[in-house]
Design a protein around this nucleic acid. Structure first.
Lengths: 342, 342
DNA sequence: CTGTTAGCGCCTTCAC
DNA sequence: GTGAAGGCGCTAACAG
């Protein structure tokens, strides 16, 4: 049943020519007679010949494959980034190996190791929330592998980076909450390690300060993960305060939705009594009741741009290259979970 | 900058031994002196030696990699299946190449071609909604590639299959709608080609018939895709009927959510005036208002089982094998978008 | 204990 | 136009 795939040598033997001739014929080399070509191609089709890319890659030292490592494939955000990457990379006739680290540092290291052994031509990486040490990336780059970091920054690791201006997104959101009259604005932040979370928190803090508000540490609470269940817990904590907040800016939409459920259970009205803003603008977010105000990110472009930069690296061997640092602009999408501007 | 990765030969030369000795030392072969081993291993580490898997795979005719083709990586359903697959496959020390066809037949063929050229050891495939011809799969299997089809069946293509009992899920849902007193139960079905949609529709029809209801063709409408926008359109059509339905069983949760939005806009009450049931039980579904009744599927298990069967095929060369046909049981999760049983 | 040989499948010189 | 030789990096079989 398990037949040996036919090779260039099989064709050569059957046709009484040399393997080189077959190879040349298959590549439509001008120095091969039409007859031979026809014969070779015909037989190749008949034998269902398929070039063995392993052999080709071994020879060329190019796999025409890039490795993508994301923390979670399940999330709308990363899944969409990947779509962008795929569309870009396809044009260059490159393939993608998609891997998820499940937010685990160990898995991330292992994945990089494996991809590296498999000799992928380049890496697109968004580190896990547990990753604080970037030696594995340093090592990767030290051995000459093109690496582009996206969405989540790796501080102190020099590389091409394509990020979203999380600070700006958060600032827009909180500034808007202030301007719509919210007095006690809370923030549900995410894992400390993540620059995305740090920057969103910084945006939150600065928006408060620029508007002359004092920061109340009780109004900042942290979640371990990014799920709605995490959001529920965090919201409960906030609502149990003696003077609960009248606005919550959540680290992302999933968390915001969990918060929304808790708020609703308590019979508190959104946005009259409490405003709610998320981050990501997931497809479902507009369908909640009330529809969720959120910060949209150029996710698809993030994928396109990251892979464009990576491909540029791979295809043109660049000397003395200055790493690029791209910051994409997010945008606040106002819906009904927050009040209108006066 | 782009350094040539060090090879076994580099180490051999530097140490004045043969490449085989190095190879054996690296594999901790018992027939190598401890000294030599130590020397080799030390130098290997120093040179940052990494075995070239391309060469190994070429030699073994095994890549220890399996290819997964799904229509859409973005969907909760497939993303979760992949998690199951990954966890299973990892135990066997296999890698995954994840690809999405974007519901395009052409892309699907191309992906299979590419993976096949890359000599993956096996395939896990859920066909696109445009796929009606299975020659590409036949060809794949004919050349001895293990193939497992999951979730979406390929009629007339013999292979291992791991599916969900969509008929049963739909039957449960509609039977329940009948029992809760719904008189005019509509169904939003999906792309005709998909067996999942066909079976859900069959379950819907049979549940009506078994309960002595007549089927009103006006109450069956079809969507092209699986998005909430599709659901909105479909729901509008249904609600514009002279006697609109008092229940909608939607092909999946995303579509149901679109329908929910339209129903709400018209000021119709769920579930008092109209019941709504989805399929998939996505994580968000319980957070909608009202929370969505839906058919849960054993998604993670689907991934685990499919890959277990595939791995079994790959690891044990099975002769005269009878293809397996596994049908996993879904479960109706009752929430507030439908009425309670009397 | 270690070296030599051969070959996985392919392509690229260099000959003729 | 075509063939022969060599090699990508690695391992297994056969010798010592």
């Amino acid at each position: 049943m398990k037949r040996r795939p036919s090779t260039i040598t099989d064709i050569a033997k059957a046709l009484n020519v040399s393997a080189s001739t077959v190879s040349r014929a298959l590549h439509d080399s001008p120095s091969i007679s039409q007859e031979t070509k026809d014969a070779v191609i015909a037989l190749a089709k008949q034998l269902n010949y398929q070039p063995n890319m392993l052999a080709v890659s071994l020879l060329n030292k190019k796999t025409k494959t890039i490795g993508v490592i994301v923390p979670e494939i399940t999330s709308y955000f990363f899944a969409t980034v990947i779509s962008g990457v795929q569309d870009m990379v396809e044009e260059a006739n490159y393939k993608l190996i998609i891997c998820q680290s499940n937010e685990s540092f160990e898995e991330e290291k292992k994945l990089i190791e494996t991809l590296s052994l498999g000799r992928v031509d380049g890496f697109l990486i968004s580190p896990s929330s547990k990753t604080t040490n970037f030696e594995h990336l340093e090592k990767l780059r030290a051995s000459g592998n093109p690496v582009v970091v996206f969405d989540r920054d790796c501080p102190n690791f020099e590389a091409d980076k394509v990020l979203v201006d999380d600070y700006d997104g958060a600032f827009q959101a909180v500034d808007y909450l202030v301007k719509t009259g919210c007095q006690r604005i809370a923030h549900i932040t995410g894992p400390k390690n993540l620059t995305t979370c740090q920057h969103r928190k910084a945006g939150y803090l600065d928006a408060l300060k620029k508007n002359g508000r004092t920061v109340n540490p009780d109004y900042i609470t942290e979640v371990e993960g990014f799920t709605s269940e995490d959001g529920e817990e965090a919201a409960k904590k906030l609502l149990d305060l003696d003077t609960p907040p009248d606005a919550i800016f959540a680290i992302n939409d999933a968390v915001a939705i969990g918060a929304m459920a808790v708020i609703r259970e308590k019979g508190i009205h959104i946005p009259e009594e409490i405003s709610l803003v998320g981050f990501d603008d997931e497809p479902y977010s507009k369908y909640f009741k009330p529809s969720l105000t959120s910060v949209w990110q150029p996710v698809y472009d993030l994928g396109m741009l990251s892979s464009r930069i990576l491909m540029n690296h791979i295809l043109n061997d660049l000397e003395d290259y200055n790493y690029r640092y791209e910051l994409l602009k997010p945008e606040l999408i106002i819906r009904n979970s927050s009040r209108p501007l006066p």
